[in-house]
């Protein structure tokens, strides 16, 4: 179903509200993100896609929402005393480095294999509104 933009009833019957609310009495949450976190990825023609076009962005591991936390092997943010978790200092990795690491070729720069895997899992879990998400989304285009 396509939403009717500008329809005054839209706020009451948007399918998104219906789909996502577990409890119909509870209002849906809206994630605001941050000023600097872009919310748009534009679809480009696949055939004109060159590796250079989206590879100039970078992704911090972790973003500000992970301040003071460690990264578990599955990519979740955990308290720094969690056994088997990896320290992170918000270092930014280039899209190119991440792309190579995701395709299994290399580890992230300066990270051991296990740490690199944990960081990549963190990147895979990025959601809209978190730093680096749009960069990760645009990486889908060049893989």
């Amino acid at each position: 179903m396509t939403d009717n933009i500008g329809n005054p009833d839209a706020e009451n019957n948007s399918d998104k509200q219906d789909d996502n609310s577990v409890n119909p009495n509870r209002r849906r949450m809206l994630m605001m993100g941050a000023v600097a976190t872009s919310a748009v990825v534009t679809v480009r023609p696949a055939i004109a896609q060159t590796s250079g076009s989206v590879l100039d962005c970078d992704i911090p591991v972790a973003g500000s929402h992970g301040y003071g936390k460690n990264i578990a092997p599955d990519g979740t943010l955990v308290s720094p005393d969690t056994e088997g978790s990896f320290h992170q200092d918000g270092r930014r990795y280039t899209a190119n480095n991440i792309k190579q690491a995701l395709s299994g070729g290399k580890s992230l720069k300066g990270a051991s294999y296990d740490k690199s895997q944990a960081y990549l899992n963190y990147i895979r879990r990025l959601r809209a509104g978190q730093s680096g998400f749009t960069c990760f989304a645009s990486l889908q285009y060049s893989r």
Partner: peptide, 16 residues
């Protein structure tokens, strides 16, 4: 959303 993104890049003629 992830599927849509992947398929636009897996399509030769989506944009056209």
């Amino acid at each position: 959303s992830e599927v849509f993104m992947r398929l636009t890049q897996a399509s030769a003629n989506f944009v056209g």
